[in-house]
Simulated scan of single mutants.
Amino acid sequence: MLEDVKIGDSIAVNGVCLTVTAFGDGVFTADVMAETLAKTNLRDLRPGSKVNLERALRLGDRLGGHLVSGHVDGVGTIAGLEKHDIATLVTIKAPPQVMKYIIKKGSVAIDGTSLTVVDFHQEKFRVSLIPHTAQATVLGSKKIGDTVNLEADILGKYIERLLQAREEQPAQNSKLSPEFLSAHGFL
């Protein structure tokens, strides 16, 4: 993973984008601000904690997940784990600033792992882990009560901002409206 790393590169740790400040022999160092610790579950890590690591996407690479930036929207809590055939259904209690972007069959990053939402309710949503995902990520070792970093797909955030801007200053002759977005499956 660190074979071509350089100082200044981005590496996501449990979905939190961090900047490499030093590296060597299979390890890297990153500075973590108080704001990052306050708004993510990195504060819960201890020496030896398992984490998900992911390098930044390079232009031209395949996009196999969804669009996230490593800027966590909120911290959720594992509220339920249920075996269902070969899969594990994971229920996550999430804050309102995340839940407003959650849709059935939509995407969400949990500790940096891109997953599809199975269903949702007012304060919770569920995802399903196949055995490979449970083994290859930290999600497979999480227990009820554990915290997870949550990030919604950035497309929903851009749509929300465009609609806010339109309300603040309506564009003349624009065809972009809540009705248009709804009719075309965006809302």
Rank of each mutant, 00 (worst) to 15 (best):
M1Q: 08
E3V: 14
E3A: 14
V5I: 15
G8K: 10
G8P: 02
D9G: 02
S10D: 08
I11T: 09
V13G: 09
V16A: 12
V16D: 01
L18I: 05
L18V: 04
T21M: 12
V27E: 14
F28L: 02
T29N: 06
A30M: 05
D31Q: 09
V32C: 04
M33E: 13
M33V: 13
A34Q: 13
E35K: 12
T36L: 06
T36Q: 12
A38R: 15
A38N: 14
K39N: 15
T40L: 09
N41H: 04
R46F: 02
P47D: 13
G48P: 04
G48L: 12
L53W: 05
E54I: 10
E54M: 07
A56K: 11
L57V: 14
L57S: 05
G60Q: 08
D61C: 04
L63R: 05
G64S: 15
G64E: 12
G64V: 10
H66K: 09
H66L: 05
L67F: 15
V68D: 04
G70F: 09
G70A: 11
G70D: 14
V72S: 03
D73M: 07
G74H: 06
G76T: 01
T77A: 05
L81S: 10
E82C: 02
E82R: 14
H84R: 15
D85I: 10
A87I: 01
T88M: 05
T88F: 02
L89S: 04
V90R: 00
T91A: 02
K93Y: 01
K93A: 14
A94I: 07
A94E: 03
P96F: 11
Q97L: 06
M99H: 00
I102N: 06
K105G: 00
S107M: 09
T113H: 00
L115C: 05
T116L: 02
V117L: 05
E123T: 09
R126V: 10
R126E: 10
S128N: 07
S128P: 01
L129N: 00
I130D: 01
I130T: 11
P131V: 08
P131N: 11
T133G: 01
A134R: 07
T137N: 03
T137Q: 02
T137V: 01
L139I: 09
L139V: 05
G140S: 08
G140L: 07
G140N: 10
S141Y: 11
S141C: 13
K142F: 03
I144V: 15
E151N: 03
D153V: 03
D153R: 03
D153H: 05
I154G: 00
I154L: 08
I154H: 06
L155V: 15
L155K: 12
L155D: 02
G156H: 08
E160Y: 04
E160I: 04
R161C: 02
L162C: 08
Q164Y: 01
E167R: 12
E167W: 01
Q169E: 15
Q169A: 15
P170V: 11
A171I: 11
Q172N: 03
Q172M: 07
S174T: 15
K175R: 15
K175I: 13
L176F: 09
S177Q: 08
S177E: 10
P178A: 08
E179I: 10
E179H: 12
E179W: 06
A183R: 14
H184E: 11
G185M: 04
L187M: 15
L187Y: 01
